[in-house]
Design a binder for these strands. Sequence first.
DNA 1: TTGTAGGCGTTATCAA
DNA 2: TTGATAACGCCTACAA
Lengths: 349, 349
Amino acid sequence: MATPEPTSLPPTKGRSGAKDVARLAGVSTATVSRVLNRSQQVDPATRERVLEAAAKLRYVPHGAARTLRSHRSKMVGAIVPSFDYALYARTTSALQQRLDERGYALVLAEHHYELAAETRIAGQLVEHGVDAFVLVGLDHEQRLFSLLQDYGRPYVLTWGVDGAQRHPSIGFDNRAATLAVTRHLVGLGHRRIGLLSAPPEGNDRARARGEGLRAGLAEAGLTLDPRHIAYAPISLAAAEAAMQQLLAAPERPTAVVATNDVFAVGAMIACRKTGVRIPQDLSITGVDNTDLGATQTPGLTSVATPITEIGRAAADQLVARLEGLPCETFQAFPVELVHRGSTAPPPSE
Amino acid sequence: MATPEPTSLPPTKGRSGAKDVARLAGVSTATVSRVLNRSQQVDPATRERVLEAAAKLRYVPHGAARTLRSHRSKMVGAIVPSFDYALYARTTSALQQRLDERGYALVLAEHHYELAAETRIAGQLVEHGVDAFVLVGLDHEQRLFSLLQDYGRPYVLTWGVDGAQRHPSIGFDNRAATLAVTRHLVGLGHRRIGLLSAPPEGNDRARARGEGLRAGLAEAGLTLDPRHIAYAPISLAAAEAAMQQLLAAPERPTAVVATNDVFAVGAMIACRKTGVRIPQDLSITGVDNTDLGATQTPGLTSVATPITEIGRAAADQLVARLEGLPCETFQAFPVELVHRGSTAPPPSE
DNA sequence: TTGTAGGCGTTATCAA
DNA sequence: TTGATAACGCCTACAA
């Protein structure tokens, strides 16, 4: 034994198994299993004895053994882009809570906006035997879809709706969100509207939200000036820097549509530092209606998205599919524009 | 078959096992195992063949089987109070990232500030076979500690330091955080300082932070007026309501120490709605130095806490203990006061 | 260096 | 309704 001996995990030290419970209750392990798995085929009296014995021994079933034999781990895997900025936290929270109620545990990981990492992590989750998957967004590597296909277990894409209905999905119309704010801005009289967004590659939400802006502009016979587009990774600092570019652009836009509240608040910070007044000099809008945006001065006009509903619905759908119950595999929830003080008519020239 | 048939999970449908890899590589399953577990005892040529075969068959080991046999699941369980408000998100993120690098998956759950729920969930994590635990805070049910004792695996408490060193812990001095802000406020001339906090029961962080305020006041020969204390659950709305009480209190405080940034921002909102100017009429401070506080107008004076360091250190410690390597089981990181615009001398009477 | 064989703790299939 | 028994897929002695 050369290595420091991996902390020799006591094989099953004091822990008692189904066998112990069976012995104490005077039944076989098969009966113990039946009782604990709520099978109806068991005499109330014996059930009682078994439960007593299990309680007395503080019996905790061995999940791995159960998984190995039954092919169900009672774990659901979720891979989200990031825990930061509370963008996905509320969805994850709702998901976890609902899964917990249904007796499932959540195995959670981040991919930091790298789809290759997402695929790799999905492989690990398969290895850990999760019964189902929750993914964020519609864009994923083909390899990931192949993996899911081979694995043959339920999965659901969230935060977007798959128009072609190729994959079960639960979300909302990201395009509609920015379309709504754009109409609002155009209605206020804005003609030069900029875009502050996450890089669109591999991020369907960012793409759809950008399209919403373009569509809204097109409705009014306007176009998106390429010089009025700035992409940045999702962080306040990066958004602030990107906004500085837009502020320095020729024919500076009178309004900026940010594809989420983090970008929008980063933009507000840039404006504060530059002395650009919101909304008198420039209007700014976000998406997701987070506390971060709502508590700014002035409050951020944003679009409320159904982030907790998505988490709950994802849990419900997956559990239903795992238990062979009927369910909706495609769900879209509405979004709603929330007016606050960050938008106003453009300054008169 | 009466019930809708639990989606008959294909036992091992197409999925290939170690046996398949062994056959294709022309070796035994033992050798496959050795190759995949980086045992040195294997001929480079055979190793190569095995890896090729594994890749060809897209072999993914069956975690449950491995766990059952090896008594190590390569999963770490973490239970945090809540995903909301990004208070614990950054710690969780750092934890997950570091665990992932080390080949461990994170099973994550919330207890919503209910310690009984925490104990229940810990039991589920035991059932799922996690190799180690990360808990937040020092306060936990005795039942939970018993459970951990029985389970006999590593665990670490975070976000606090266990002075008595009864349990491995990684955190910072919560008392010192509010002590620092209190000294700052006292130094500015404040004599009536209020407290806005989470209910202290079962929340050692809140208690320690409250004590920091009391200690800072005591240093200056001052005391905390009971009428200047307000407790609220952790949410912006609740904090706002609690702050309204403080604003309505007799001999209104000239400064309020909030035990975290969420409370502080909730307090700022209350002030805005009431026409109380910050910092001219009232100073406010937070703890945790979140983006939420930093982006307010004026910026929130707060205390930077080592939240990502905690996550990383927790992962490092647990992995080290699991692998029998040496490590620090008690770690304290420093905190740092961050001055922003929400604090100023009290108004002259 | 490699193969053989037994068992980890549970659930499922039978038969009783 | 209950019990005996055989897997589940892998790891790890031990033997070769």
